[in-house]
Every structure is written in C-alpha cells, then in structure tokens.
Design a binder for these strands. Sequence first.
DNA 1: ATGGTAGGGATCCTA
Length: 259
Amino acid sequence: MKIATWNINSIRARMEHLLVWLRETNPDVVLLQETKVTDDQFPTEPIEDLGYNLAVHGQKSYNGVAILSKSPIEDITMGLPGNGDDSQARYIEAVIHNVRVASIYVPNGQEVRSEKFQYKLNFLDHLYNHVKQLLTYEEAFVLGGDYNIAFTDQDVYDPEHRRERILCSTPEREALRKTLYLGLTDGLRAMHPLGTPKGQELYTWWDYRAGSWQNNQGFRIDHLLLSPQAADRLQGADVDRDVRGQEKASDHAPVWCEV
DNA sequence: ATGGTAGGGATCCTA
C-alpha cells in the first residue's frame, strides 16, 4: 500500500499537476493539505475518473485537507479530536484497508511567541493526546501531513540562520518530538538515515521567495509518522522532488511511503 | 532587519 502526503497549495490551482502525478506514481492513498476550497467546490470528478474515492474537509480560502483512496474510505473523522469546534479545517482521519490514516495541516505559527504560534502549540498538544489514544488500539496507522516543523538541524538548509525561528524553534520541536517519542516512526528518515549527500537532502518544502528552489534552500517539514504496527511493515519512503521543479508547482513536494 | 513569491479573493491575509 503506497501512501503519499502532499501540500498542494490550492487544489484548483494544482489540479493538472495532481492528475499527472497520480497517473505517473499511482499511489493507493493520498493525503492532501491546503486544498483552499469548500467541500461543495472541490473538483471531485477528474479524481474519481482515475479510480479514487474522496473524503474532503475544507473551508473557503485557507487550509483544507482531503483523503484520496482507491479502496473504500471508512470511519471518517473531520477535525482534530479535542480541538473543540475549530473553524480551521486542518485534520481528517479515516480507515482504509484496516490502516488508519490522517491528513494533517499543522498551523504554520507565523512568528515564535505570536498568538498564531500559541495556536500551533495548542494544536500539537491536542495531536499528542489524540495519538496517545490511537496507540491504545495497537493498530497500523500512518499520520501524514504538513507539520510545519523540521525535526532537526539536518532537516534545514541553513540551521544557524533559522535558529529559534518558525519551523525550527525549540518549543515547537519539543511539542512534536513528544508525540514522536510516544513510539511513532518518522517514515522518511527511517528509510534515509542521516548523512545524505549534498543536493540530495530530504527537503519537502522550498519557499517561493528568494530563489529558494533554485538554490536548494529547503526544509523537511512534511512527514509520515507511523505506528509500530505500520513501521514493522515499512518497505520504502521517498520525496517526489522533481514535482517541485515543474512550472507553477506547489511549494511542497509529495512524500510517500510503502507499507 | 527586510523583502523576496504565490494563492485566494478582496483591495489584504496567510504562508
């Protein structure tokens, strides 16, 4: 089962990219973030024509998550449990073929110590509690998404420049590591131990600004986090880096794993 | 410290 996560930065702006990538890479499950569209406006038909079922949780202009799957999608949950009746569409969870999956769009946080940063930490706290609950089921699960956090300095092009700034600060890293250390596996890193050659770093996001892509100034902030039962079956994982180099690309590249 | 780009949709917000 090939499970991919991709922040597409608007489903409507990226529809052709998505369809080409689906045809070329043929994932079984796709976890999308930043669809930026209400559910009634979601362009479902061209995706269904490729044989995918859909579960969408969107809103106008911002955020929005979705699950695409060739197999039936069961037990759909919208919204991060415990996060109240949140107006921000950042979490959708479902069960596919006895594997629980989630598409997660962790708040960016904008600036450390800002109000938005506090919202990010609160979200991560709720995610921690929810993962703790999920682990009690002792099932295979894969939580994919744009976590907006680079776990370590090896996941950042210029860690000194980014020291204690957003995506890299200690409070957000600690908040996400706390969840990881409950017993999850960072799927991509598990398949690519530290020490990748220059130019082949596992970055997943390159800012549109300042020629970040051209200069390979990237970050690894999109992750696939696996439960022990899923990690035991992990066969491979990688970044579809070439996607980022296309015309009118999303600023994120897809990340996938095979379980 | 600033500003660089993109998307949505409204003349600015979010990333």
